[in-house]
Amino acid sequence: MSTVSIEYSQKLTSIQRSLYAFILSLLPNRTEAEDVLQETNLILCKKAHEYDPQGHFQAWAFKIARFQVMKFLTKKKRSKIHFSTEIVEDIAAEEFDLKRVAVVQKALAICYDLLPQNMQKIAHLRFKDDSSLKTISEKVGRPMGAISSTLYRIRQKLNDCVKEKVTIVESEMDFKKS
């Protein structure tokens, strides 16, 4: 395996959030996305010597991640529901740009606190603990269908709220910089 410089490892570490989000957008299943993320990180380490330090690191890493997803999809084609390769090629990597991710992350933290307590509980179980709908249903004593529609409402609420807060967060971040 090639030796990885400290600078390269720092770059790789800094894009992990965006890289995972990008892979998840192509492969909307957390376990599979995590597997592909691991595989992509391995390839990125192996190909460290091929990276041109003048180039855009994230774009290069995303290109490799997209290829890894394609490879994964070709292997798993017959067994599960997945997006077509056309869609995988279509999704824009720019949506997961590092700066944008940082702003959304701050806005999301504000919006999460604004969720009602019962929604926060379900959100914690699903997003943080990665519990299945069945497990959540058993833990909170509500039918699986109700959990599914609550999660749908949580996602909508967060989406609407983040849209609102993003501009405030951006101006705050710009103010701090200046």
């Binding site: 992990q16 996305a33 949506e95």
Partner: peptide, 14 residues
């Protein structure tokens, strides 16, 4: 779609 995914991954990751 990408917005939903980004929120999902940030909530899970961070």
């Amino acid at each position: 779609y990408c917005n939903f995914i980004l929120h999902e991954s940030l909530l899970h990751w961070e």
